[in-house]
Design a protein around this nucleic acid. Structure first.
Lengths: 331, 331
DNA sequence: ATGAAAGCGCTAACAC
DNA sequence: GTGTTAGCGCTTTCAT
């Protein structure tokens, strides 16, 4: 298309200007906290003055480190692209990676074939790091050794795989306590999918809070989507007609619940309170506006990206984020 | 972290197996539709048999082509990350780029400094191509020559910059005709931001359809977001109390309008019909469910990515996508 | 058309 | 610690 682009100022230039070899210049610029030799300082200064920007591509080729961080989404649905949560996560990662001159890729796999996906990523020379979304225990066990140190999980982690997580137990507890505090006594729940480990905390919170309050349990299995909410609501109303609150495992599920209740002329929150989980953009816009638990998706994604982009500084990255009650009008 | 990763099968291996030099093998694999020499065929066959996957990183270093396609978003807001449309676009691009072993980056710039952003991208060796979102005429004029052939615009284009677009004139016309057909006679509009060229088509559709029907115009300036909808609705009700329909330039704006109407006890669609534009996920979930125009965001993003990823095959990529009325309950 | 050779810009062994 | 020497895997002159 256009003439070949050459790099503005290369390491070679910097080295020459600083009066050292390329290798020394390279080390001076790379070394995290090594000794503070005069040469090192000089190189750094010269590089800064000349506006040297290391070429990530060359770096990747020489070092065998890749050029992209891939967001690997495990799930039942065929396209995580329709999931606002996944899109937001990917976009935030794309911003974070950009700051390091790297790119981001989005790949999806059914939960069952996660091991194969991980194996592929492990041998792919273009992948710099991996962010696992919707992590399962099996997936954690299947992480190849070659991915160690450059993979991070959103949700549950393991000895080998660091994680960035949200305190969903606290968030769910806050939501449920809110329901109890506002006088609800027949609190039903549409559960999250069974295969997602970190979602089980919502079930724990449900059991705990209801036990504390001496209230009866009434939970039905569910999933991630609106359809699960519709089915769940129908089942709940059938089995426990005296239900006065529904805790949905995700906002999408809550929307399904709201739809069914509206269809049956049930007043929300008058007759039945409804609470979701996630605080997607639509939550604030629904009618009634959804009471839910909010999560800093952007900060979570940024933290995860940081962990794989700069393993050295990973220790300084916050790994746990809050899940907090947002009280709107549905509950 | 882990041992150096080497490529499974390199071009060198293929060349040797095919009994030719690396250069020949490279050419054989690259040439689009050159002559069909026996050697070329043999190389291709051998490569396929050996499962050769060219290393995008090496390719980028040698050829000066980059490793990532950057989604450059122009806008007034500080973070396009909160915009579901931008997130979806980025995620779809991240999937498309992945198929070519490349990554995606997301970068934002105020409309005013678009030229600077474009200049930066033009000299950045890591960028393979650019997808411009929310393109303005000024931005098109500012596209550096070095970006020619590897930049595509979503929305308006120019001689130098190909575009992937949606037929928003048709979509808006369909929405407005629907309002007229269902008996609305005082149709107001909350306009899109003035600086976005492709959005002006909605204004054109509004003028045309209303003129055709012999109806009076009542438009107020607006923007992209919920707040613009709130302000717009208030202004409209004040100036034209007999309004019986509102056409909002985006779904978010429509949500703002709905909020105000609900607050004033106006029945939608009984008293006033409301229609949006875009069909974001929340549109189907709002109450009343939003009548709007739907756009295949995913296909649009994929097409745009394809244009910059494979300029040779760009001619075969669909460049215009439909904008179609989705009738729900708000109008 | 093909091969030999020269890089792309950087990192990493290896000696000193 | 520093310089020297090899590459990383591919594309692209330049001769032939």
């Amino acid at each position: 298309m256009d003439g070949r682009r050459r790099n503005a100022v290369t390491l070679e230039d910097v080295a020459r200007a600083a009066g050292v070899s390329r290798a020394t210049a390279s080390r001076a610029l790379l070394a995290g906290g090594g000794a503070v030799t005069p040469a090192r300082e000089r190189v750094r200064e010269v590089a800064a003055r000349m506006g040297f920007r290391p070429d990530p591509t060359a770096r990747a080729l020489a070092g065998g480190t890749g050029t992209r961080i891939v967001v690997a989404v495990l799930g039942a649905s065929t396209d995580p692209l329709d999931d606002p949560y996944v899109s937001a996560m990917t976009a935030a990662t794309a911003v974070a990676a950009d700051r390091h001159g790297l790119g981001t890729a989005l790949r999806w796999s059914p939960v069952a074939t996660a091991p194969r996906l991980l194996a592929e990523l492990a041998v792919d020379r273009t992948v710099h790091g991996v962010v696992l979304v919707n992590t399962t225990w099996d997936a954690l066990d299947a992480v190849p050794a070659a991915l160690r140190g450059r993979i991070v999980s959103i949700g549950v982690g393991s000895d080998a795989v660091p994680s960035v997580d949200v305190d969903s137990l606290a968030g769910a507890t806050a939501v449920l306590r809110h329901l109890v505090r506002t006088g609800r006594r027949r609190i039903a729940m549409v559960e999250p999918p069974r295969w997602l480990p970190c979602a089980q905390r919502l079930c724990r919170a449900y059991s705990t809070v209801l036990a504390e309050a001496g209230l009866p349990r009434s939970a039905v299995p569910g999933g991630f989507g609106v359809a699960d909410g519709r089915a769940g609501a129908a089942a709940i109303l059938r089995r426990w007609p005296d239900t006065d609150a529904v805790f949905a495992a995700t906002d999408a599920v809550a929307f399904g619940v709201l739809e069914v209740l509206r269809g049956r002329g049930v007043d929300v929150p008058g007759d039945i309170a409804v609470a979701g989980f996630d605080d997607v953009p639509a939550a604030a816009l629904s009618h009634p506006a959804l009471t839910t638990a909010t999560h800093p998706v952007r900060r979570i994604a940024t933290a995860a990206a940081e962990v794989v982009l700069d393993p050295a500084g990973a220790a300084a990255v916050p790994r746990s984020f809050p899940s907090e009650l947002v009280q709107r009008t549905s509950a």
